[in-house]
Design a protein around this nucleic acid. Structure first.
Lengths: 359, 359
DNA sequence: ATGAAAGCGCTAACAA
DNA sequence: TTGTTAGCGCTTTCAT
């Protein structure tokens, strides 16, 4: 069999010129393709002369390796996929950012996908990421049950780490916070402020955190002799928060406090309460969960449970990396402690003044 | 040359089992690989029998094509890359979502990357996307000048569409809004409300929109006999909004209105004003730009310039797709009209009451 | 130290 | 209609 003749592609239509390839670098450096490859990947021995020639040629030609070809050959894309329930929720966006930082640190590219609030979309995105051969997956799942199928299938091929929410029946590493503790912190604080009746707002498309938070709500109200109104379950959107307020108003007496399992919900709640002429915290106290940047900026500023995004991301990335490297121990489960950030939305007089201008 | 013997890879470490490949489907269906390929890609003729057998086999084995291999062969990944200046800014997140929707509609995958506020990171991400061989790029650039180099290089290989901001010296399609008009709408309204002095807050890492908005501010204040304070330029973050307020206070008399070129800035401004005991809109009016979801929920609700995300995304995706399909006409430049959303942050008495509970 | 050659999993041109 | 074959651009034995 004679050596293959390298036929160049014809001119590409439009603006694309042929990218410079390894063979161009090799030719320019006067070495074989394999030598060029060795130099550039840093694997295997090679003479100093070859090294210099290849590096110079690569630089001069602005060579950028075709990662598709490299991935096919190496059976690894050096990338990890991530999906979140809904990117427009700033909490998830901030989580993504934190993950991105840690992935960059270990030299992996992030390939991000948005489930846009639907587990069907999530499943499609997860499948697409697997087909694109990401080396691993960090998933903030949309649904405790519905997310299971696609993730289980993905997990047969690549490591999957669950972030924030667990998924029933799925054996995978998980990193989140202690949701029960978060709710307890809120309830303790509300008791301190003299609340006796509280209402709980969370997402229904049940993720595991909602479950834990709801459970903690039931248990916590009982233990503290708080009167729990019927929980209202929807989704983690401002719209849901608004609607829930309408329902609360309709249903009867305003509770002392509205406990929201998400800041965006709480922000929606406060917006609607204001529209209805109901004052926070005078008429009703409101608390959130997550501590997104807008929680501090609302008026009144929102009391909320702070989630340590950096540490969550750090643990998630570390876990995934060690799985990618072949670690096959039992699935890990990590719960980080959240902390309460008290702001004006839940403070009763005598009030603690946050800032005072020099009189 | 005898037919290649297909050697299976050894067991993969950890949890990965060998994904089912086209040859498995072909074998199961009792046809050749190429027939299987033809059936599944829908290209070329094939008998009904073959079609049925292959489809059945593919379904039974849960075959998912290796998109890396397909991409290498087809010289197309059926994906488009997108970068935004900072994903944690809800406006960009909402823009991404809109783009995602339209891309899905035309069967392209979105590969999203976050520049995290730095043009260096942006450049790295753009390079990575090109190396990953996305078929095109939709970029909301971070910087009018600094973004140029990496984008120009990318544009030599694949179509690039600029969204929201233009980039100097870069010949590429652009879709944004009429920023001048946006500022004029704001200034007109402020005049109506009796403002005579206004201050402008925008981003310094200059993107083209900031430029247009600043320019419109100078021109507009002059035309309307408004007294313009010195513009304060920083970045599109809540933090910058807060800092700017401190500076305004320090520098002297409070203007009648603070015009922000971004909602997140305006939200930071209002938060800090409140902390300082300065009332909006009584002591100073505030306006934003973008109309993110939190603009409506702030107290007072924020008057802002609404950007039509859907239409922006639609135009951007359409332009990119036609470029990918080979369209090589002159670069296009589209400016969509924004509109003003008046809310309480800029209303002087007699006030329009937004909602009233039945007394 | 270096080059030839064999694929990674798939598509498509060509032959039968 | 179907199978054979030649790659896509790269990495990596295996000889030399």
């Amino acid at each position: 069999m004679r050596p293959a003749v390298h036929k160049h592609r014809g001119v590409t239509s439009g603006n694309g010129r042929r990218p410079v390839q390894l063979r161009d670098v090799a030719a320019a450096a006067g070495v074989s393709i394999s030598t060029a490859s060795r130099v550039l990947t840093g694997s295997g021995r090679c003479s100093a002369a070859a090294r210099l020639a290849v590096e110079e040629a690569a630089r001069r030609l602005a060579y950028a390796p075709n990662k598709i070809a490299r991935a096919l050959r190496a059976q690894s894309t050096r990338s990890v996929g991530m999906t979140v329930p809904w990117l427009r929720n700033p909490f998830y966006a901030e989580l993504v950012e934190a993950v991105d930082v840690f992935l960059e640190r270990v030299g992996l590219d992030l390939v991000l996908a948005d489930a846009r609030g639907s587990w069907q979309d999530e499943a499609r995105r997860v499948n697409a990421l697997v087909s694109r051969r990401v080396d691993g997956l960090i998933v903030v799942p949309t649904d405790h049950q519905e997310s299971a199928a696609a993730l289980a299938e993905a997990a047969r091929h690549i490591p999957v780490v669950l972030l924030e929410y667990e998924v029933g029946e799925l054996e995978a590493d998980y990193v989140g916070i202690d949701n029960g503790l978060g709710i307890e912190l809120v309830l303790d604080h509300l008791c301190d402020q003299g609340a006796t009746s509280v209402r709980f707002l969370s997402s229904a498309i049940s993720n595991s955190a909602s479950r834990s938070r709801l459970q903690a709500f039931w248990k916590g109200t009982e233990e503290r002799n708080l009167e729990p109104g019927e929980p209202i379950l929807g989704r983690f959107t401002t719209k849901f928060g608004k609607e829930a307020v309408l329902r609360i108003i309709e249903e009867g007496p305003m509770p002392d406090a509205i406990v929201c399992a998400s800041d965006v919900v709480a922000l929606g709640v406060m917006g609607q309460l204001r529209a209805e002429g109901i004052s926070v915290p005078d008429d009703v106290m409101v608390t959130g969960f997550d501590d997104i940047v807008f929680a501090e900026l609302s008026d009144p500023a929102l009391t909320t449970v702070h989630q340590p995004r950096r540490r969550l991301a750090d643990v998630a990335v570390s876990a995934l990396v060690s799985r990618i490297e072949g670690d096959d121990r039992e699935p890990t489960r990590v719960e980080l402690p959240p902390h309460l950030v008290v702001r004006r939305s839940s403070l009763q007089p005598p009030r603690i003044v946050e800032a005072s201008s020099p009189a």
